[in-house]
Lab assay of single mutants.
Amino acid sequence: VTLFVALYDYEARTEDDLSFHKGEKFQILNSSEGDWWEARSLTTGETGYIPSNYVAPV
């Protein structure tokens, strides 16, 4: 499993987005949709879409 870490804070803009804080780690569930990836936060357990340019591989 490839994990990603948040480089910046992000505040959700829609109900499908996932808010997160810098340093939070994610498991990517689906990265085939372009710039927005479906991810699960390893901190909160919540699932939603995150901007791929806000995260980097651990």
Results as ranks from 00 to 15, higher is better:
Val1Ser: 11
Val1Met: 14
Val1Ile: 15
Val1Trp: 14
Thr2Trp: 14
Leu3Gly: 04
Leu3Lys: 05
Leu3His: 10
Leu3Ser: 06
Leu3Arg: 04
Leu3Phe: 09
Phe4Cys: 06
Phe4Asp: 00
Phe4Met: 11
Phe4Ala: 11
Val5Met: 10
Val5Phe: 11
Val5Cys: 05
Val5Trp: 06
Val5Leu: 06
Ala6Asp: 00
Ala6Thr: 02
Ala6Tyr: 00
Ala6Phe: 01
Ala6Trp: 00
Leu7Trp: 04
Tyr8Val: 08
Tyr8Leu: 09
Tyr8Trp: 15
Tyr8Ser: 07
Tyr8Gly: 06
Tyr8Asp: 07
Tyr8Thr: 07
Asp9Arg: 04
Asp9Cys: 05
Tyr10Ile: 01
Tyr10Gly: 02
Tyr10Phe: 10
Tyr10Pro: 00
Tyr10Gln: 01
Glu11Trp: 08
Glu11Tyr: 12
Glu11Cys: 07
Glu11Val: 14
Glu11Leu: 11
Glu11Met: 13
Ala12Phe: 03
Ala12Pro: 05
Ala12Gly: 13
Ala12Trp: 02
Ala12Ser: 15
Arg13His: 12
Arg13Thr: 12
Arg13Tyr: 08
Arg13Glu: 10
Thr14Gly: 15
Thr14Trp: 15
Thr14Ser: 14
Thr14Ile: 06
Thr14Gln: 11
Thr14Cys: 09
Glu15Val: 12
Glu15His: 11
Glu15Gln: 11
Glu15Asn: 11
Glu15Trp: 11
Glu15Tyr: 11
Glu15Ala: 15
Asp16Thr: 11
Asp16Asn: 13
Asp17Gly: 14
Asp17Cys: 06
Leu18Phe: 09
Leu18Arg: 02
Leu18Trp: 04
Leu18Thr: 02
Leu18Tyr: 04
Leu18Asp: 00
Leu18Pro: 01
Leu18Glu: 01
Ser19Lys: 04
Ser19Asn: 07
Ser19Leu: 02
Ser19Glu: 04
Phe20Ala: 02
Phe20Asp: 00
Phe20Trp: 01
Phe20Cys: 01
Phe20Leu: 05
Phe20His: 01
Phe20Lys: 00
Phe20Gly: 00
His21Asp: 07
His21Phe: 12
His21Ile: 14
His21Cys: 08
Lys22Cys: 05
Lys22Gln: 10
Lys22Gly: 04
Gly23Val: 01
Gly23Gln: 03
Gly23Leu: 03
Gly23Ala: 03
Glu24Gly: 02
Glu24Tyr: 05
Glu24Ala: 05
Glu24Cys: 05
Lys25Trp: 13
Lys25Pro: 05
Lys25Ala: 07
Lys25Ser: 07
Lys25His: 13
Lys25Asp: 02
Phe26Ala: 00
Phe26Arg: 00
Phe26Met: 07
Gln27Ser: 08
Gln27Ile: 15
Gln27Pro: 00
Gln27Trp: 15
Gln27Gly: 03
Gln27Asn: 08
Ile28Gln: 02
Ile28Trp: 02
Leu29Val: 08
Leu29Cys: 06
Leu29His: 05
Asn30Lys: 08
Asn30Gly: 10
Ser31Thr: 11
Ser31Asp: 14
Ser31His: 12
Ser31Lys: 15
Ser32Ile: 15
Ser32Arg: 12
Ser32Asp: 13
Glu33Asn: 15
Glu33Tyr: 15
Glu33Trp: 11
Glu33Met: 14
Gly34Lys: 15
Gly34Arg: 13
Gly34His: 10
Gly34Tyr: 11
Gly34Ser: 13
Gly34Cys: 06
Asp35Cys: 06
Asp35Leu: 12
Asp35Pro: 09
Asp35Gly: 11
Asp35Lys: 12
Asp35His: 12
Asp35Thr: 15
Trp36Tyr: 13
Trp36Val: 09
Trp36Glu: 05
Trp36Ile: 08
Trp36Pro: 06
Trp36Leu: 08
Trp37His: 03
Trp37Ser: 02
Trp37Glu: 01
Glu38Phe: 15
Glu38Leu: 15
Glu38Pro: 05
Glu38Ala: 08
Glu38Thr: 11
Glu38Gly: 04
Glu38Gln: 14
Glu38Ser: 08
Ala39Pro: 00
Ala39Asn: 00
Ala39Trp: 01
Ala39Ile: 03
Ala39Glu: 01
Ala39Leu: 01
Ala39Gln: 00
Arg40Val: 10
Arg40Thr: 15
Arg40Phe: 13
Arg40Asp: 02
Arg40Asn: 05
Arg40Pro: 00
Ser41Trp: 02
Ser41Phe: 03
Leu42Lys: 04
Leu42Pro: 03
Leu42Phe: 08
Leu42Asp: 05
Leu42Asn: 05
Leu42His: 06
Leu42Arg: 03
Thr43Tyr: 09
Thr43Asn: 10
Thr43Pro: 02
Thr43Trp: 10
Thr44Cys: 02
Thr44Tyr: 03
Gly45Ile: 02
Gly45Ala: 05
Gly45Lys: 05
Gly45Glu: 05
Gly45Met: 08
Glu46Phe: 13
Glu46Arg: 14
Glu46Leu: 14
Glu46Tyr: 11
Thr47Trp: 10
Thr47Gln: 11
Thr47Arg: 09
Thr47Pro: 02
Thr47Leu: 08
Thr47Glu: 09
Thr47Val: 13
Gly48Arg: 02
Gly48Pro: 00
Gly48Leu: 02
Gly48Gln: 01
Gly48Ile: 02
Gly48His: 03
Tyr49Pro: 03
Tyr49Gly: 04
Tyr49Gln: 10
Tyr49Glu: 03
Tyr49Asn: 09
Tyr49Ile: 09
Ile50Thr: 01
Ile50Ser: 00
Ile50Asn: 00
Ile50Asp: 01
Ile50His: 00
Ile50Trp: 00
Pro51Lys: 07
Pro51His: 09
Pro51Gln: 06
Pro51Met: 08
Pro51Thr: 02
Pro51Gly: 03
Ser52Pro: 08
Ser52Met: 09
Ser52Asn: 06
Ser52Leu: 05
Ser52Gln: 08
Ser52Cys: 07
Ser52Trp: 09
Ser52Glu: 04
Asn53Pro: 06
Asn53Gly: 12
Asn53Thr: 11
Asn53Leu: 10
Tyr54Leu: 13
Tyr54Pro: 01
Tyr54Ala: 13
Tyr54Lys: 09
Tyr54Phe: 15
Val55Phe: 11
Val55His: 01
Val55Arg: 00
Val55Ile: 12
Ala56Tyr: 10
Ala56Gly: 09
Ala56His: 10
Pro57Asp: 05
Pro57Gly: 05
Pro57Asn: 05
Pro57Met: 09
Pro57Ser: 07
Pro57Cys: 05
Pro57Tyr: 06
Val58Asn: 06
Val58Gly: 05
Val58Leu: 12
Val58Thr: 08
